[in-house]
């Protein structure tokens, strides 16, 4: 007996029972008169069946693909979409009216509030973006001025040192 069969867990016991029963049933097929035990013809049959199945599905895939590209399909798709959207709108309108009649806040009220907050958030982000750009521009300008000042001062010092070297040589 397996560990699962000894287990007190009914789920495990059931699983073990099921597995064993099905395995045994699969291993001992009922004998029929005149039946052979060779698997070869069956394998050939299975291959043929698979080939037929493959051919069928390939044809089906091609047919579906052609159909789904057709004008008729696109028109039907639009019609069903329009109908489902119209139904949804009708239901939404009905629910809004019902809630309004019960004096309770509707989704639209909450959405308006969210919309307002979002507007504020967007404006803050926009301002921050612009400020960031300005700071970056100022930093760039400062860097450019700093490097040009360094260049001119180093150029001056180079000129001075070369002049002093020249005067020393003299």
């Amino acid at each position: 007996m397996s560990a699962a069969a000894n287990s007190n867990n009914p789920a495990e016991q059931w699983m073990q029972y099921w597995t064993d029963a099905m395995k045994q049933a699969g291993m001992t097929p009922p004998q029929m008169p005149g039946a052979t035990t060779s698997g070869e013809p069956a394998a050939a049959f299975t291959d043929q069946a698979k080939q037929m199945q493959r051919t069928f599905f390939d044809a089906m895939a091609r047919y579906c693909d052609d159909y789904m590209r057709s004008e008729e399909f696109l028109k039907q798709m639009k019609q069903s979409m329009d109908a489902s959207l119209a139904f949804k709108k009708m239901m939404d309108d009905f629910l809004v009216k019902a809630q309004s009649n019960m004096q309770s806040p509707v989704r639209g009220d909450v959405e308006d509030l969210a919309h307002m907050l979002r507007g504020i958030e967007e404006r803050i982000f926009d301002r921050l973006d612009r400020l960031e750009e300005k700071v970056a521009a100022v930093e760039e300008q400062q860097q450019a001025e700093g490097s040009s000042a360094r260049t001119s001062s180093s150029a001056r010092s180079t000129r001075t040192s070369s002049a002093s070297r020249a005067s020393k040589k003299k």
Binding site: M22, P41, A42
Partner: peptide
């Protein structure tokens, strides 16, 4: 004839396979 199984026994491997699959269901 080419499409037919040679004997009813040809179905049994399929039957065995089906039983194996049923056995595997809980897993």
């Amino acid at each position: 004839a080419a499409m037919m199984p040679p004997s009813p026994m040809a179905f049994f491997p399929t039957y065995e396979g089906m039983m194996e699959r049923m056995a595997a269901m809980p897993q």
